[in-house]
């Protein structure tokens, strides 16, 4: 059983604050990125949160946050919930099977989780509006990975420092 640690109020505030910022980011179209290539901020947020330390968050909480994201900005209820859940499970199993200790290993694991998240998101897409061009899909992956790294940096600074 995963031993859950509880977050203090300030840490909870950071996680919630970043969740709200993520909602805001999903509503902004950046002029220098084509719309089809915009990063999936929620997947980046979830992977960063899970990969920094999943002991802070139980699978239920992650699933619930996924459902909230679905209700607010998702296509289908349960889509992000399902994606977050599988990311959590993947992280759980990989961490159990492999000794992920160094920072580099954790980053590679995060990138794998981001790719898996995007793949699950595409597979569960209700509109099948998958990007037509390979370049825009590739850019989306790259931007999501960059967003994940930024989120991870913030989580590492804030969740571990407090």
């Amino acid at each position: 059983m995963i031993q859950q640690k509880s977050l203090n109020n300030q840490q909870k505030l950071y996680v919630l604050g970043l969740f709200l910022i993520t909602i805001l980011l999903t509503q902004i179209s950046l002029p220098f990125i084509p719309i089809g290539s915009l990063p999936d901020y929620f997947i980046a947020w979830a992977v960063a949160l899970i990969s920094v330390n999943n002991k802070y968050f139980s699978v239920m909480k992650i699933f619930f946050l996924g459902l909230v994201a679905d209700i607010l900005i998702g296509q289908l209820i349960g889509q992000y919930g399902f994606t977050f859940l599988l990311i959590y499970v993947l992280h759980f199993f990989i961490s159990k099977m492999l000794a992920i200790q160094s920072n580099g290993q954790k980053t590679v694991l995060g990138v794998i989780l981001v790719l898996s998240g995007l793949l699950i998101d595409y597979m569960t897409s209700a509109t099948y509006e998958i990007d037509n061009y390979e370049t825009s899909a590739l850019l989306k992956i790259i931007f999501t990975i960059i967003t994940f790294l930024i989120y991870r940096l913030i989580f590492e600074m804030k969740l571990k420092a407090i």
């Binding site: 239920m60 459902l67 289908l76 209820i77 349960g78 919930g81 399902f82 859940l85």
Partner: peptide
């Protein structure tokens, strides 16, 4: 939870 989310979807 996975089954629940698929059912919800």
């Amino acid at each position: 939870l996975a089954m629940c989310s698929i059912a919800i979807m």
